[in-house]
């Protein structure tokens, strides 16, 4: 029975990768609920399965076994087009390397997911400008990514991720390429937007100083959740 409070429900999720003839298990039976509006950090050593789990939560990869429900829907039943539409309307991504389209201005980059939704050009530009203003880049609308700093690029990426009012923000090591001060600014921004918009935020990190600021921390080891601060708190 699905709990309406939960945005994500994972049951016995397994994901294995083939490397030549060897099969490497990345996730080995994950059970996890993530409630709407939560701010969650996933951490753990390299190779523990953080990115694999994040990819599954962001619907850009699929599990070999188990079930994953997003917003009450079993994603295994969705076609590729339905998954694309779901990502476009309900999920925003922030990548470690920003992954902005280099030939587009900040405004056009932020407009992109809205354009994919099929919204009119004037509306997308207006919304994109608003979001760039919210992340402190109101004066950089026409700047291309190559003329912006790392912190500014990541702010553009955050604006792009949130412009479509998604229910989930996925950030894969969003501060890995940023200095300490900028990392805190970016996490401050994500935290503020989480509180302001109620969007569920999940990010991975290696930085213990950032972890301390996050209400719920999931530690992954060898493809399993070895520690869930929410469970500890609940107990």
């Amino acid at each position: 029975m699905a709990n309406e409070e939960n945005l994500l429900e994972l049951r016995q999720i397994e994901r294995t990768f083939a490397l030549g003839e060897a099969r490497i298990p990345a996730l080995r039976g994950i059970d996890l609920n993530i409630r709407r509006g939560e701010f969650v950090a996933i951490w753990g050593p390299s190779g523990s399965g953080k990115s694999t789990l994040l990819n599954l939560l962001g619907l850009i990869d699929s599990a070999d076994k188990g079930s994953l429900k997003f917003d009450g829907q079993d994603v295994a039943r969705l076609s590729d087009n339905a998954l694309s539409d779901c990502r476009n309307r309900k999920i925003g991504f922030v990548f470690q390397n920003f992954n902005l389209i280099p030939v587009l201005s900040a405004l056009d980059n932020v407009s992109l997911p809205l354009q994919v939704q099929g919204r009119p050009g004037a509306e997308t530009r207006e919304l994109a400008a608003q979001w760039l203003g919210k992340v402190g880049l109101g004066n950089f609308l026409q700047h291309r990514p190559d003329r912006m700093s790392g912190g500014q690029r990541q702010r553009v990426a955050i604006a792009r991720a949130l412009a479509g009012s998604p229910r989930l923000l996925i950030a894969d090591e969003p501060t890995a390429n940023l200095d300490s001060r900028t990392s805190h600014e970016v996490i401050d921004l994500i935290e503020a937007l989480n509180q302001e918009t109620g969007v569920t935020c999940i990010f991975t990190t290696h930085d213990p100083r950032l972890l301390a600021r996050v209400p719920r921390q999931l530690k992954l080891e060898d493809g399993l959740i070895s520690n869930d601060s929410y469970q500890e708190y609940a107990q």
């Binding site: 962001g58 590729d80 087009n81 694309s84 539409d85 476009n88």
Partner: peptide, 15 residues
């Protein structure tokens, strides 16, 4: 990588 990004933000294969 850009194609991956576009797909991640919801652009369909046909797009």
């Amino acid at each position: 990588r850009e194609i991956g990004t576009l797909r991640a933000i919801g652009l369909r294969r046909s797009g």
